[in-house]
Design a protein around this nucleic acid. Sequence first.
DNA 1: GACCAGGCACATC
DNA 2: GATGTGCATGGT
Length: 205
Amino acid sequence: MYKILLAAFGPQNWWPAKTAFEVCVGAILTQNTSWKNVERAITNLRKKHLLSPASIRRVRRDRLARAIRSSGYYNQKAGRLKTFARWFGCRLRDRFKNAKGIPTSGLRNELLAIPGIGPETADSILLYAFNRPTFVVDAYTRRLVERHHMLPDGASYNEIKLLFESNLKKSPKLFNEFHALIVQLGKTYCRKTADCKECPLRRSL
DNA sequence: GACCAGGCACATC
DNA sequence: GATGTGCATGGT
C-alpha cells in the first residue's frame, strides 16, 4: 500500500513547521479541524510572536484564544496550549535537550497525562516533532483499515497502531510519509464511492 | 442549512 | 467498555 500511495501521490513532506514546538502547536490546533484553518491560526500566532513556550505561558488566555480563533474550539485549545507549553518548557529545557535519551513509551505516557493530549495528538507529536517511530492513527487510517478488512471493524486505536508498527520497518521517515499519504488518500477519495477505479487502492474511503 | 475536518474530556449507563 | 455530548470555525 505504501509503495502504491507513494507512486500515486509522491512524497508529502510533512510536517510543515519551523520548530518542534510549532509542530506540537499544530498537532493540538488541528484536533477535529481542517489544516487550512490551523494555518491561519499559526500565521496569527507567528505575527504576534506567540510561537514559543515562554510567550504562550505569559500571554493572557483570552488574547491567545482570539489569536487561534480560526482553528475552532478556541477557548478549549487556548487552555490546552498553555498547559502544553508549561510541560514543554520545563520538561524539555532542563533535563534532555530535544528529549533525547528518553524512551518513546515514557515520553508517550507523559504526553497522554497532559489534558488535551489524546492518543492521536501524542503520536503526532512523537513522530513529527521528536522523530520517534510511532504510527499515527487518525480517522482516515481507521477507514482505510476497515474498508480493506485489515482488522475487524471497531478495532481499538492501539490495535490499529500495532498493525502498522509490527508489520513495517520501525522507521520515523517511513511512518511519517505513510501517515501523510493516508491522509492525502482520504482527502482525495473520501466518500467518492462511485469512483473507486480512480483510487490508487481501488477502494474509496 | 447540512455536513465535514489530520480529537478530546467528561457524564452516564 | 460503549455511547452521547460539548467544544466552534470555515469550506463545500
